[in-house]
Design a protein around this nucleic acid. Sequence first.
DNA 1: ACTGCACGATCGTGAAAAGCGATGATTTCC
DNA 2: GGAAATCATCGCTTTTCACGATCGTGCAGT
Lengths: 298, 298
Amino acid sequence: MRDVELRHLAAFVAIAEEGSFGRAATRLGYTQSTVSQQVAALEKAVGGPVLDRPGGPRPARVTPLGAVVLERGRDLLSRSAALGDAVERFKAGDGRIDIGTFQSVSSVILPTVIRRLRDEHPGCDIRLSEEEPDTPQIGQLDLLFYDGRVAGDVERVKLLDDPYLLVAGAGDFPEGPVRLARLDRAPMVAWPLDCDQPEMEEALARGGAHPRIVFRTAVNDALLSMVRAGLGCAILPWLAVRGANVETDPALSIHELRPALPAREIYLHWPAGRTLSPLATRAIEIAVDVAAEVGESS
Amino acid sequence: MRDVELRHLAAFVAIAEEGSFGRAATRLGYTQSTVSQQVAALEKAVGGPVLDRPGGPRPARVTPLGAVVLERGRDLLSRSAALGDAVERFKAGDGRIDIGTFQSVSSVILPTVIRRLRDEHPGCDIRLSEEEPDTPQIGQLDLLFYDGRVAGDVERVKLLDDPYLLVAGAGDFPEGPVRLARLDRAPMVAWPLDCDQPEMEEALARGGAHPRIVFRTAVNDALLSMVRAGLGCAILPWLAVRGANVETDPALSIHELRPALPAREIYLHWPAGRTLSPLATRAIEIAVDVAAEVGESS
DNA sequence: ACTGCACGATCGTGAAAAGCGATGATTTCC
DNA sequence: GGAAATCATCGCTTTTCACGATCGTGCAGT
């Protein structure tokens, strides 16, 4: 009782429905003799006849054993078709994709990427997770946005350089660039010390600026509200500034820094050495495009 | 996207579980190169890679596309195994059998047949139907007991001759055979006129006996109660007499008839020209055996 | 009874594939 | 820099697949 072939079952089902080997052959695009041999193979596989051939123009009928095979065979064939459909849908871009993001990273880029991805593949299942492990890991994610390089067996592409800008109350500083030294001992609000923040503050120190951090939060809106309230100024990456519509806020002013701080680098990571899903491949392309568009408007 | 072969899926699933082509090959009894080619065929069929081969001793990993194929493939394989199981169970004698019986026919034989069948095949599904069409038909039945020959495209075997006996009140007749002529004008109880009854009464008439039928019912116990009550005597087939334990009833006596009436013939029918299920085949054998045992004790 | 007629089985053939063993390329570990 | 493990690939034989042609068979129409 070894291998039943799907093709044999298909022939058998066709015969059961058509009532004749010849018509089944026509339906399947085979020859009558081929169908006959397929049934013979199936009968050998199951160890008994599945069809009664009354002879003459009378239709073939399934035997009791054939009824058992027919029921299960139909099921098997429909599952096989389901497999084909699933593969087709997958290749068309449907399916699931798990994307990781951290902190305030890509509050500008990611929504656009997701919007375009959903527009292209309405059936896809996009899952976002915003985690904060000490060491960011790719884990089971398909894609991971991060402002820096993630360790591990990953490939990455740099989406853009995200320069730091000074956000202050309107009138606090004269328009135009601000020298770093002017920020020494100045009151500031800032992000918490995870994320890229420590590197940024070290760079500030190297430039001679040792600001007094009077408030820390990861929520950009809260930071900006504090700046508006006169608690202090803030140094934020350009993306965060842009995402909060700071440019149009009359209570705030934006200044470049001199010398400039090393820009934050936004990377997109994915597991190395693995075949990516079409969805993930496309998402990377879209992310690069979006980053380029965002970057050239700076 | 050609036809996926079950054997290719089996190889793929084995690799996914073993993590290596070679171990999968060992498990399946193939060579490593064969398994490699099976996966290649599968990948050609689905139109993309289903496994990442990191190279070296690192285990193979399924790709996103492979995950889709794996999920459905496992399902397909388990269904295939289910087909095999179902066939095995069927050939072992499990499965369904529809048996038809009519009237009081085989109140002795049929229960024994069913008991033995159930003892041999505890998992089988035996369905009895007792119908009474004007013209008995095999219909969708696998087996049909009937006291006479059923018309249609059927095969049959005669299980036994069932001679008619006279059942009377104790002392109504002297012990031993009774001449038919003595029953002329005698009060009798009898079966209704369907079934084999008309033929029997004609035979009585040809023997010169024109009894007065004072009560008709198909229920044997009711007939015998009437005989005990002195309403009249009854002519019943030997099987019916035996089934009701008349022999040990001191209020009743049993007599052969002279000349004997033509015996009722009990036939077992099944559809002609169709392959029978193992269960039906065995049921026929058992029925013949049981009929022989019953017959030789007469 | 004879003859079409439709149906399925069977045979021979060429092409495709399954499976095997051996060999090669690649990567990790020591 | 090997040793070991892994998978791909090549040549080869055996099996299977599919086809066309032919044959046997039961039914129906003459």
